[in-house]
Design a protein around this nucleic acid. Structure first.
Lengths: 320, 320
DNA sequence: TTGTAGGCGTTATCAC
DNA sequence: GTGATAACGCCTACAA
């Protein structure tokens, strides 16, 4: 017991005793057993983070920020890669409920509104993303519609009149593509520009490769266009590459704007205009919400929806 | 006890009993307590991964591959971000020894040869990186010298005669920059080309920003050059941007090659020639070595040094 | 100020 | 085939 008191810096230990304990610990190369401490305390000091893959630029950026934010609360982060698959996202929830983690930050990509029921758990969970609003847990999201409208408006202000949208498949109104599509439409309507369905370009996956192909095809034999709003910077990087392949000059003939402000976007040629959703703020809020839940037992009475701020970062790809 | 037998699929449980247990579990919403299981078993099923930051392209790629490889062994991965700082790398070692992790994969960036002593631990550790060779633990490394030589040779074969090296500070012969510098020199010597110290360009940090500045300065008023070997793709991305700022055409006037083959490099304009060090193989080996150590107690008798393979990926930036 | 008792939830062992 | 017992290492509560 005295050893425990020394380890945990409890007062009421005589300096001489403390010294003897420390010496013995050093001599025996003693290490506290974290598993035993966890069992006794009922907490592990670790939170789970479930994201599609840490190597994807946006999720990597977010994971880094979340690990840093968690560290400020004295928490470690264990990462599950879900591959954006619904079943893996549900599995992460299950692990968290097994008290492997004190709480879980879950990026819902594969799960959809129909899975809201799975979130009815007596365990701290914060949802990150667009797929689930109004669920039984706290939620941190991007200002998708407003930011997408701002990005589109920026293209209009720079003189674009036939603006394409490069997005994923528009399925159920609650994914990244659909929400940003809504913002794109809003901006066009507000400016009195027609919405040409031929300029809404869906790619099967939000990858550079798919985006590059689509951009090449559009430039080769698609309808005329003078601007592209890409739903992510990854898509925009692919688009820039595809347009270059087709001999289209950016921003001379076509202006391009992305979304996410990943580190690389400032160094592309041309550098990429984009939306900065303040990843650090989102990470900080997500961890703060989770920590608050970890304080009390049981299901929360009120859920918080935190929508981040954003700013436009104007670079060469929408220059004059 | 019978519950435990059911949960762990032990034989010798009568089907009817198993059924009753399963029903009770469902009724009570029973969850195994992983902390208690860890205490009892003396293992946590989690390994630690200490890297500078998951958001850096190379470490993100590696982390993703490691998480996937660990998953194949039924292990979770908890990530510590060290910021490349020696003290944080040592702290990760300490956590692992506290039995928080069953083992640790440690990317040594801040630690150096002088810290070999810290690795003398009775706990599974695999070192990843260049800083520590011949230590008391297993080690997975890139084929730095050979691959750097191959990259430089490629520039020579493409007609370059004044090849710059864009690297970090060359301090102690056992970091990424120094090892790749050695390969660069080897290739120049083998080709009978002079080694011009003015063409060895150190930047204070291996970032896009620092590289872009250095490339601009070189193009503006440095010595003449017709090729650049960049020690990482990140540095190469910065260099491409800096050269573009200075109005230098790539590959027309100057050819550029990087190292790492990060996802983005294929989509840059111009696309980036680079060295692919087979991240998946490195990750797979690192986890396999760690798992092997986790089998036995105590310090290993023999240490394994695994040096990955590599291949050149030729793209536009070194095209004719 | 120090030390004793007990229990966190699980599972290896062994008796029934 | 089932279950009682004990122990993994720690820390809260309380006694000395």
């Amino acid at each position: 017991m005295t050893v425990s008191n020394v380890i945990n810096d409890h007062p009421h230990v005589r300096p001489a005793t403390r010294q003897r304990v420390l010496e013995a610990m050093a001599r025996l190369d003693y290490r506290v057993n974290v598993a035993a401490r966890n069992l006794r305390k009922g907490r592990t000091g670790t939170i789970g983070l479930a994201v599609p893959e840490v190597n994807r630029p946006y999720y990597g950026r977010l994971a880094a920020a979340l690990i840093t934010a968690a560290d400020r609360h004295g928490l470690r982060v264990s990462i599950e890669q879900t591959g954006a698959r619904r079943e893996n996202e549900l599995a992460a929830l299950s692990l968290s409920r097994n008290r492997l983690y004190d709480g879980l930050i879950l990026a819902t990509v594969g799960m959809g509104p129909a899975d809201v029921g799975s979130l009815e758990v007596d365990h701290p969970v914060v949802i990150l993303g667009e797929r689930i609003f109004g669920g039984p847990v706290d939620h941190v999201a991007m200002p998708n519609v407003a930011a997408a409208a701002a990005a589109t408006r920026h293209l209009i202000e720079r003189g674009c009149r036939r603006i394409a949208l490069l997005c994923g498949e528009l399925r159920d109104e609650v994914d990244v593509s659909s929400l940003r599509h809504a913002g794109y439409r809003q901006a066009l309507e507000a400016a009195g520009l027609p919405l040409d369905p031929e300029l809404v370009l869906s790619v099967p996956s939000l990858t550079m490769d798919a985006a590059a192909r689509r951009a090449r095809a559009l430039a080769a034999d698609g309808p005329a266009f003078d601007g592209v709003f890409c739903v992510t910077d990854t898509v925009a990087m692919g688009a820039l590459r595809g347009l270059a392949d087709a001999g289209v000059r950016v921003p001379g003939q076509v202006k391009v704007i992305g979304f996410d402000n990943v580190d690389e976007s400032a160094f592309l040629v041309p550098s990429l205009s984009t939306v900065d959703p303040d990843h650090d703020l989102m990470a900080e809020r997500a961890v703060a919400l989770l920590v608050a839940r970890m304080g009390h037992e049981g299901r929360p009475a009120h859920q918080e929806e935190f929508v981040s701020t954003f700013s436009l970062v104007i670079r060469e790809s929408t220059g004059r």
